[in-house]
Design a protein around this nucleic acid. Structure first.
Lengths: 218, 218
DNA sequence: CCGCGGAATTGATCTAGATCAATGCGGCGA
DNA sequence: TCGCCGCATTGATCTAGATCAATTCCGCGG
């Protein structure tokens, strides 16, 4: 099994063994659905490879991407009856799935683990607050730049530091994450590229003027 | 001490007694600051009375209100070194303050309590996701209506159900919560009042056409 | 090598909501 | 009682970003 990043870092050897017993390694192909908003929450997932798109839909089809889960991220933490959002694979995705029963039993037995999960939830909440600031009070250009720097930072934390930010999601996904249209995302990217602030490369973007970008992200 | 709502509902008698020992009841007058974004996080707070405005600032003064804390809500859960947002009193506010040390000791000793806190954090995260949908993908009218119904529901959960929604915060606070300007909030309120969807009363709003409002909130 | 289909870019135009600019309207202290 | 002063409302105008509408660009299967 791929080593569980983040959540299990503080576990002892036997706890980790126990966890591995309960985990079911699973694979999803590009575009496949892990779970759907409103469906009964049977499983909790730990992403071990690939990127997952997390989103909510309005009845008329408007979509808000609430996040992108990277390796190490935990999905379905809410411990409620139904999932609060939908999740599907962007490219190939590997996860460890835990049944709800196994998950709750584990949490009851291991305060260690609960503490880690709580820290994780709390970090997610901080990210959500930053996203609220982004969505409510920033311009299109600022949104794009914050998004790029945020992705760069997240990949760096996972040990993949690079001036080239991988963007496996579509422009539409980015638009729905930032509360913009696909056209505005595209135009803003080209403008930043003309500026020499970024360079658009296949499957991502290369940061050319990090200083200016950090200044704008303020 | 005012009974701690929500967080302590699952505690046994002696645990509650222990908690009360550690809690410092504190009072804040209108506009007083509980804590500031970026300041070292000395305390965790449980609101026992009044309403607290939670917000983040950008260096140029743009403000995003990330939430309004009502009685029973917990502030400073993040357990990190610095507060992620600022908090100040809207009208008079009563809280129970816990020192960080007392809080972490308590959490380590009482898995019960940690579980409750985790559920609380997880609920906050769900609310934050809904707010992201609101900020990114909804119109001004929809934002206002969702806000009013949300506040009504929260007061109802606290045992204050009413067709009149109390709004102790200013129009500017509402605007900064919904990612709008004060003028748009004001205009949208007057339009809804002309519709007979709501009635504007001193210190709040009376829901006149709940059906239509729920339909719009979808 | 060609042609097809989904994604992305680019351009023209439109509009929801922002911005700029007066008033209005309580509540409160002298 | 009067006169502020800080919020709130209302009106006129402007604009960032949405919408509508073509292309263009690739990756892939035949």
């Amino acid at each position: 099994m791929v080593r569980l990043v983040s959540v299990c870092a503080s576990l002892t050897g036997d706890e980790l063994a126990l966890l591995e017993q309960l985990a079911t390694p699973t694979h999803f192909g590009s575009g496949e659905t892990l779970f759907t908003q409103g469906a009964e929450a049977h499983c909790v997932y730990n992403v071990t490879g690939g990127v997952v798109r997390l989103y909510k839909l309005l009845s008329d089809g408007r979509r808000q991407v609430v996040g992108f889960a990277l390796p190490g991220d935990f999905l379905g933490l809410a411990m409620r009856d139904a999932y609060g959002f939908s999740a599907d694979a962007i490219g190939d995705v590997a996860v460890c799935a835990f049944s709800r029963a196994a998950y709750t039993a584990l949490v009851d037995a291991k305060p260690h683990l609960l503490k880690r999960l709580h820290e994780f939830a709390t970090h997610e909440l901080t990210l959500a607050h930053e996203q609220m600031m982004l969505l409510g009070r920033r311009t299109a250009e600022e949104k794009l730049i914050c998004f790029l720097l945020g992705m760069q930072q997240r990949w760096a934390r996972l040990g993949k530091p690079s001036v080239t930010v991988q963007l496996p999601m579509t422009r539409q996904d980015i638009a729905d994450f930032l509360g913009l249209t696909i056209e505005t995302v595209s135009r803003t990217f080209t403008r930043l590229a003309k500026d020499k602030t970024i360079l658009i490369v296949p499957g991502g973007v290369r940061v050319m003027n990090a200083e200016r970008m950090h200044a704008i992200a303020a």
